[in-house]
Write a protein that binds this DNA or RNA. Structure first.
Lengths: 342, 342
DNA sequence: TGACTCCGCTAAATGCATTTAGCAACACCC
DNA sequence: GGGTGTTGCTAAATGCATTTAGCGGAGTCA
C-alpha cells in the first residue's frame, strides 16, 4: 500500500554499478552487446532486489509495442453466447503475458470507430474483432498496419478469420441420429429458407445446414418435415414443435438448429405426454449451458468458442496469415438420443 | 491502411505557428496560461486538420494517468452469472472515454498477483476487483495507492464495495408470495444451515435469507418446509422438490434461492403432473436468462449486475469513498405466481 | 612497432506530451 | 522615470526505457 516511488532502470543500474544501457540489454536478453556473465549477475540481482518493473509507457514510447491487445466486439463480451470466446482469448493472452482491452460496440459504427481510436491511442499490438453471431463484419478503415484477426466473423477488408467448422459439425449432428437408426422420422427444426438462399443470417449457418444435408444425402435419408423458424428462441421452438407433434405421429427425432429451440422442443414434447429419448430423440447445436440443465441431458454439437478465442491470440501474435481457420465442433453426447421406438 | 507516421504535437504546433506548449495547453483546456482566442482557433484547426491524437504513452509517462482501468475478476468476465457486471462496467467506462483491461484469475492467488502486476505495469488509473459470486476476496498487498473498488465482493484490505441489496431483495421475494395469499404452504428451497451460521458462502446470501425471514415475520408467516441444499444447481432443485412433493400435499408455493433451483423445481412439478402457478407458485432470485425461457415465465428478484458495474466506474473515477454501496434488486414479475388453489 | 580487430561497456540521443520557470511587451501609477 | 502588474507566449526540463554510436584497453598480425 505504501506509495513508494517507482523503481526505475537508473536505480537498478546504480545499485548494480552498471550503466542503464547495460542493464537494459541484460534484462531484455539482448546479446548484441557482449556483456560479461558477471555483469549479468549483477544486473539481475539488483533488479530482483529492488523489485524492478519496467515502465511500459516509457518502453512503448520507444518501441511502439505494449503487450496489450484490443478485443473489439459487437456484444460478444457480455452475452452468454460467447463467454467461451472471451475466456479463450483471455486465457491465451495471459499465458503469453499480454493484456486485453475489451471494447464493446453494440454493432454501432460510431462506437466501432471510437473503439478503434481508443485502441490505437493506446498502441495495442493488434486488434481482434469479434462477433457474438458468426457474421460478416464491416470494419471501418483505420490508418495503421496493426495485425487484425476476425473472431467468429468475416470481413471484406481483413481476411484472417476464425470460424467454427460448421459443415463438419452439421454432419456430426445428422450422423448421431442416423447412426441411432432414425431414418425416416427426422424433423429439421429451425432451418430457414432465407438462410439457405444466402439472404440473411450468416454464411456459417448456411454451412451448418449444408453439412446436415450432406450427411443425410450420404445415407439416402430425407427429412420428414422441415420447419422453418426465423427466431431461434425457446418460445418459437415450443410452438413449432407442439404444432408439429399435433399433426404428425411419425416423428421419431428432432434435429434442432440450436439449443434454445431444443429447449422449447423439450417442453412441447413433455406437454404432449411424450418423453425424450424414448419417444423422440433430440439433437441440436451450440452446447449452451442450457443443454446440461435439461433432463435428460441434451446431445448437441458444441461451438468451440474457447478454442477459437485461443486461436485468435495465436494468430494475432504470430502475424495474421490471411487464411480462414475452421475449428472443430465437438459432439457432446448426453442422453437425448435413442433408437426409434420401432 | 496506409502507415502514415504519427502526427505529433510538434507537427500541430508548427502548422499553427505556435509552441508545443501553447498547443498542449489549449488542447487540454488549461486556462492557467491565458492564451488568446486567436491562438485557440489556430491550435484547434491545426489539430483537426492533421487529425492529431495524442500519444498516450508519452502523456502517461508524465502524468501517470492512462484513461485505462483494470477489471480483475475470478471468473466474472466469462460466466453467464455476471455478464451484466462486465457489461455495466464496459458501458460506463466507454461513456467516460476509458478503456477496460479485463483480467481473469480463476481465483488463483498466483494469477491474481500476476494480474495486479500487469495492471500496475500499464499504469491503470484504478482497479476493480470483481467476483462472480458475492464473496469476500483476499487481495494481495500491492505497492501503490491506486483507487480500488470491490465489485460484487468485499475485502478486508479495501473497503469501497458494491453489493446487491440482498436484504431488501429477500423481503420482496417473500412479499410477492405473501401478497398473493400464500401463508401456510410456502417451502423455502435452498436455504442452508451453514450459510445462516456464517460458516460458508457469502455474507450476501445470509442477508438474502435474513430479508426473507424478516418479511415472513412481519406477516406472522412460517415456512412449511425448509429444504437445505448445498449445491444450487437444477439437478439438486429437481431432486429436492420432487421428493418434497412426494411427501407433502400441502405445498402451495416455492421460494427458491436461485433461478437454477427453480428451473429444477419446474421440472419436478411438471413430473408430478402439477402446474405452475395453478397448483404451485414459484418465486426465486437472480433473473438468470433461464428465467425468461421457462414456461410460464419465472417471477424472480433480479441481481442488478449492470447497475453495479456502472456504479463501479463512478466510484473508481470519483475516488473511492470507503463505503458499502447497495444496489436495489428489481422484482421481475412474470407468471409463476397465483393465489393458492383455495 | 604500427595497424587492426575484439571486448566490454557507456554517453547521449530518442520518442512525445506536459509542466515549470520565465521572458518580452505594454499599461498603469505616483 | 522607476516600480509594479498583466498579458500572451515560449524555452527547457521532465518522465523512463531503448538504441545508436563510440570509447578505451587488450590481443593479434605482419
Amino acid at each position: 500500500m505504501a506509495d513508494t516511488k517507482r523503481v526505475t532502470l537508473a536505480d537498478v543500474a546504480r545499485l548494480a554499478g552498471l550503466s542503464p544501457t547495460a542493464v537494459s540489454q541484460i534484462l531484455n536478453g539482448r546479446t548484441d552487446a557482449r556483456l560479461s556473465a558477471e555483469a549479468h549477475e549483477k544486473a539481475l540481482t539488483a533488479a530482483a532486489k529492488l523489485g524492478y518493473r519496467p515502465n511500459m509507457a516509457a518502453r512503448s514510447l520507444r518501441t511502439a509495442k505494449t503487450s496489450s491487445l484490443a478485443l473489439i466486439s459487437d456484444l460478444v463480451a457480455t452475452t452468454r453466447f460467447a463467454n467461451g470466446l472471451i475466456r479463450g482469448v483471455l486465457e491465451a493472452a495471459q499465458r503469453v503475458q499480454h493484456v486485453v482491452m475489451v471494447l464493446e460496440t453494440g454493432g454501432l459504427p460510431a462506437r466501432e470507430i471510437q473503439a478503434i481510436d481508443a485502441a490505437l491511442d493506446r498502441e495495442v499490438d493488434g486488434i481482434i474483432f469479434a462477433s457474438a453471431r458468426s457474421r460478416e463484419l464491416y470494419i471501418p478503415d483505420f490508418p495503421s498496419a496493426k495485425p487484425v484477426v476476425l473472431l467468429n466473423a468475416t470481413s471484406l477488408s481483413h481476411s484472417t478469420h476464425i470460424l467454427p467448422d460448421e459443415q463438419a459439425g452439421g454432419r456430426k449432428a445428422a450422423d448421431v441420429l442416423l447412426d441411432a437408426g432414425h431414418h425416416r422420422g427426422i424433423a429439421l427444426i429451425g432451418h430457414n429458407e432465407d438462410v439457405e438462399q444466402g439472404t440473411f443470417r450468416s454464411e456459417t449457418i448456411a454451412r451448418r445446414i449444408r453439412g446436415i444435408r450432406e450427411a443425410m444425402a450420404v445415407r439416402k435419408a430425407r427429412f420428414t418435415v422441415e420447419a422453418s423458424i426465423w427466431e431461434w428462441e425457446p418460445e418459437a421452438g415450443y410452438r413449432t414443435v407442439f404444432a408439429l407433434l399435433e399433426q404428425r405421429k411419425d416423428i421419431t427425432a428432432l434435429l434442432c438448429l440450436n439449443d434454445r429451440l431444443a429447449f422449447g422442443a423439450y417442453q412441447a414434447i413433455s406437454d404432449h405426454g411424450l418423453s425424450v429419448p424414448a419417444d423422440i430423440s433430440v439433437v441440436s447445436f451450440d452446447n449452451d449451458e442450457l443443454a446440461s440443465y435439461l433432463r435428460p441431458g441434451l446431445t448437441t454439437v458444441g461451438l468451440p468458442h474457447e478454442r477459437m478465442g485461443e486461436k485468435a491470440i495465436e494468430l494475432i501474435l504470430g502475424k495474421p496469415d490471411g487464411l480462414e481457420h475452421l475449428m472443430e465442433m465437438p459432439l457432446i453426447l448426453r442422453n437425448s438420443v435413442a433408437p426409434p421406438a420401432a
